[in-house]
């Protein structure tokens, strides 16, 4: 009887240990897994980068299109784009975990995925400092807590270094050009504005209500930023910045503070956002000189 009780206790403990993989995602839901995820599908390029950063790349069985970093990600089968993916194919890949991005993935398709009974982790980081915690949680779900914690610690250190270096320095007013025609920028809620705050820069259009507002050129002239930056994307050409050359009285033009930052770094909420932050902050520092 005693042994039986002990056996049951052990079984319960083991069972509990098995079901112990659980994290809270960004929507406050608890994601539970019986064992570390072995077959993962990523529904956004930055999530693919997150998974690779914690060494879970080999466990990814499907990615959304434009999952082009690191190079190994390009070899993984695509399941469609982030805003429209193929549910049949996802089901056929028999994933035990889907990492989703509610900021971009269509809610209706996500609901359908939930009804298929597959565990879904919702990722919705708002700022640079949210990302290390994302890596830690993905580390728990994939059973790679060690690498994940290391990667997270590294990100925290780099972020802290940036913050320390720029602390107390003269603020630099920045116009961040998201698109050329129409002329689009970002407001203060965007992560890029958060990165700007980190290195003592100020988004001149932080107060606008819309997250990605189209703005008037004359508003830019009047705001007269110290620095104009764009990361564009693969299609952005240098012509995006050339339009400002017509206005030599703009401080950014007069001091030649027009920067084309590497594409994708600042627009993806993944581990390379800190690279983007370093690039932007370096430009901000130059504008200060």
């Amino acid at each position: 009887m005693k042994t039986l009780c002990r056996g049951m206790l052990l079984w319960l403990l083991l069972g509990a240990a098995h079901a112990d993989i659980s994290v809270q995602d960004d929507q406050g839901r608890t994601v539970r897994l019986g064992k570390p995820a072995q077959r993962i599908i990523s529904l956004a390029p930055h999530l693919t980068e997150d998974l690779f950063a914690i060494g879970a790349g080999p466990n990814i069985v499907g990615v959304s299109s434009y999952s082009d970093y690191p190079a190994a990600a390009k070899k993984i089968p695509e399941i469609g784009s982030y805003n429209h993916f193929d549910l049949e194919q996802i089901r056929t890949l028999k994933p035990d975990l889907i990492v989703a991005w509610p900021g971009g993935n269509p809610a209706r398709q996500l609901t359908q995925l939930e009804s298929l009974g597959i565990a879904i982790y919702y990722d919705d980081p708002k700022k640079l400092t949210d990302i290390p915690h994302v890596l830690e949680r993905l580390g728990v779900l994939t059973g790679r807590t060690n690498i994940a914690e290391q990667a997270a610690a590294q990100l925290r250190t780099r972020t802290a270094t940036l913050a320390k270096y720029h602390a107390g320095k003269r603020p630099v007013r920045v116009f961040y050009q998201v698109w050329d025609r129409p002329l689009m920028t970002i407001n203060g809620e965007q992560a890029i504005s958060d990165v700007m705050r980190l290195c003592g820069a100020v988004n001149v259009f932080a107060e606008l209500p819309s997250r990605a507002p189209t703005v008037d050129e004359e508003a830019v002239l009047v705001a007269n930023p110290d620095l104009i930056a764009t990361s564009g994307d693969s299609t952005a050409k240098n012509t995006w910045l050339q339009r400002w050359a017509r206005f030599p009285r703009l401080k950014a033009v007069a001091r030649n503070q027009l920067y084309m930052l590497p594409p994708d770094l600042l627009s993806r909420m993944g581990p390379r956002l800190v690279d983007g932050a370093e690039a932007l902050c370096a430009a901000v520092d130059k504008a200060r000189q």
Partner: peptide, 10 residues
């Protein structure tokens, strides 16, 4: 591509 799409739609 997505970035181009956004530009084209606008």
């Amino acid at each position: 591509p997505d970035g181009l799409l956004r530009g084209m739609v606008f």
